[in-house]
Design a protein around this nucleic acid. Structure first.
Lengths: 216, 216
DNA sequence: TCCGGAATCCATCCAAAGGTGTAGGGGTGA
DNA sequence: TCACCCCTACACCTTTGGATGGATTCCGGA
């Protein structure tokens, strides 16, 4: 009798990378790529259609973020098994992806053996977080959560707004802005707005893409 | 008579991506992958060994940056044909790579058809810069060059240093630091240090990796 | 119901950052 | 040699940012 293959969905926006992954996985005994998606919306459609055993997913996707896709899939199919496969994206993304229900988090730098082993492990019900990732995660744990308002302010700081401008945008007084800043500086463990901005970018709290200037 | 294949060297640090690229290129008629490298030092060694017709190279590499590798290869072999293949890395990297002698700059998001067509075109002696990239480049052109000292100061700003600290690090007076800042703010088209920091990161003038805290 | 955290606001004080003008020394290319 | 740019530096002034302490409202959990 023929052994059942593990049915895999590959979600990755870079064509050549996706094609490479598919080619790589399809030659492996016991694995079968049943679907591909290049963006978040497509990913959900493909998942519904194929109900794969394992979903390999990049976090940076057009149209809908990888984290949102994970959340959505998990909501519809709580026992879905998802593996995040991405380049380093800052502590925040790791945290959110795992929070959202990803079972494993792999970096693209890993070998194909590791990838395949992880797919098998996750399919067997295990989780897998590389040591390097676990470390980042542990670091993050020591950090307090920003409140929504503090996050709003931080976002504006990253966008280069002055306190006065932030007040105007959020429709609060400049004094309040200062209060929030004071509190978020403490939580981020930094001493001024510039450090807060770089920390926010580096940790992935505020996505770098949001910096691109909208056309004038 | 058998047509000569175009001999390609693939330089890319992410294993799965590299394997995918190699698999993808090897099945194409008229292309032959003659070498692979996972970091900059290896890249140069492989280039010397194989003297490939085309070198596909990622800009983010361990041990030696892609731009440095390009410069080095071009110095030794001025007629080397190099294609940069990378995810978006900020205007600065594009500029420096082309400056260093790359003939084409492709994003990983492109289709494999585009990739193959570009390889053939560059092999035939042409250059190829996608429209989206050319646009960034044009934008950059309007910008004045930072002086070395201004760059030093900007780097420190990104690292969250105060003017006083910057003065100490660079061994100049705080007044001089302010002078440099004033001038670089103008050149970057921003109004304060926080904007300067995010602009530097976003444009790739200061690499984000340099922000990682060295272990205490 | 009471407590605590979040969010809002205010005033005050001091430090830091930014704007402007000026100026000397060093190097380089026309 | 002269013009030009870079680096350095200082003075002066204004604006912004950050620290601190105190205050009100609202809401959800114990």
């Amino acid at each position: 009798m023929i052994k059942e293959s593990i049915r895999v969905l590959v979600v990755e926006d870079h064509h050549v990378v996706r094609q490479g992954l598919v080619a790589l996985l399809n030659v492996v005994d016991g694995l079968e790529v049943v679907g591909e998606a290049a963006d978040g919306v497509e990913a959900i459609a493909q998942f519904r259609k194929h109900q794969p055993d394992i979903t390999l997913i990049d976090l940076r996707l057009p149209r809908m973020s990888g984290v949102d896709v994970i959340q959505r899939i998990r909501m519809e199919t709580p026992l879905a098994r998802l593996i995040v496969l991405t380049t380093y994206d800052g502590d925040e993304d790791i945290y959110r992806a795992l929070q959202a229900g990803a079972r494993a988090y792999l970096l693209k730098g890993m070998t194909s053996e590791e990838l395949i082993a992880t797919i098998r492990a996750v399919h067997a019900g295990k989780s897998h977080i590389p040591a390097a990732i676990a470390e980042k995660l542990a670091e993050r744990m020591g950090t307090e959560e920003l409140t929504p308002r503090e996050f709003d302010v931080l976002e504006q700081i990253v966008h280069g707004k002055s306190n006065k401008e932030i007040g105007a945008v959020l429709e609060i007084s400049e004094a309040t802005v200062k209060t929030h800043i004071n509190s978020l500086l403490g939580k981020l463990g930094v001493t001024d707005r510039t450090q807060a901005a770089t920390a926010a970018i580096q940790r992935g709290i505020v996505p770098l893409e949001s910096l691109r200037k909208p056309k004038s």
